[in-house]
Design a protein around this nucleic acid. Structure first.
Length: 292
DNA sequence: ACCCTCCTGTCA
DNA sequence: TGACAGGAGGGT
């Protein structure tokens, strides 16, 4: 999400006010896009909805939005400053005095039209929205047996948390990523909430995380990578002050999780209502050897 | 909580 | 050659 927000902010400096003159699609997977409906439309605004980029193309009595989901490797580049040639070029939007290029190596990206804001309204609550409070988080977590880290990736609960940040957030909050999401105490939930907001605000401030080739529409990379505490740091020392742990990697729901087995496995300070026989997953939670 | 799929590229 | 990759949706 910080990466998407970064792209959106860069697009905002270029797109509003321009008109779409022509749209070319070079990837058959994107052929469903009705390019004729785009022609002649003026870009009124650029915004983000969850991890989607939304261009408002509405005219009086003719509402229309263009939604772009970059997924893993999608990129939107302002042609004048950041053209990358023809390789992986999937679509070209020719605008008045300029062009917007959509690149996507793995072709997971999605470009679609929306006729109403409901078509791109995220199902969950935005991390940086005012309604995302500790109480709201507690309500969302309640009753879930899913391990915390995979739970954080559910876009129908919290919107915007991706795989990098899910590990980072668990570490910052000192929580075991294998803990059942519904097992967190009020104190832990407050910590999780605070650290989540802090990390996302900071990551946006840094222009997102560039692992491989993420960039904004001017070709500028993000520099939150240097702030990462656990992601891709398997085998390295834990960066929490005074913690002697070594970062470990495990796979949850098919995705890498990085965490510190020392400072993220401490037992809950106190239990909520003592009736639930749900011991902390200190050891055997994953049911299978997690370490390779 | 596990599996798989969509794709292509990179690295050990 | 195989493991893995920022996301998401599907299936048991």
């Amino acid at each position: 999400m910080p990466e998407v927000e970064t792209v959106v902010r860069s697009l905002r400096k270029r797109l509003p006010g321009r008109r779409i003159k022509n749209v070319e699609i070079f990837d058959p997977k994107l052929a469903a896009l009705d390019t004729e409906r785009l022609r002649g439309r003026r870009i009124r605004a650029v915004s983000r909805s969850g991890k989607e980029i939304v261009l408002d193309l509405s005219a009086p009595r003719r509402p229309l939005w263009l939604c772009v989901h970059l997924r893993m490797t999608g990129r939107l580049l302002w042609a004048a400053t950041a053209a990358l040639g023809e390789r992986h070029l999937r679509a070209r939007f020719t605008l008045t005095r300029g062009a917007l290029l959509f690149y996507d190596a793995r072709r997971f990206g999605v470009v679609r039209l929306a006729e109403s804001p409901a078509d791109f309204a995220p199902p969950g609550v935005e991390i940086l929205a005012a309604e995302f409070t500790p109480a709201k988080l507690a309500k969302l977590l309640a009753g879930s047996a899913m391990p915390l880290k995979p739970w954080l990736l559910r876009q129908d609960r919290i919107v915007g948390c991706g795989n990098i940040y899910a590990s980072e957030v668990c570490h910052a909050a000192g929580l075991d990523p294998r803990r059942p999401a519904g097992s967190l105490t009020p104190v832990e939930i407050r910590r999780l909430h605070r650290e989540t907001r802090r990390i996302f605000a900071k990551a946006i401030e840094c222009g997102g995380t560039t692992i491989d080739n993420f960039m904004d529409c001017e070709g500028q990379c993000g520099n939150y990578r240097s702030h990462l505490k656990v992601y891709e740091r398997e085998g390295e020392r834990c960066l929490r002050r005074g913690c002697p742990g070594e970062i470990a990697r495990l796979v949850q729901a098919g995705r890498s999780t990085y965490f510190c087995p020392v400072c993220q496995t401490a037992a809950p300070i106190r239990r909520v209502s003592g009736s639930k026989p749900r011991p902390g997953p200190t050891k055997s939670r994953t049911g299978r050897r997690p370490e390779r």
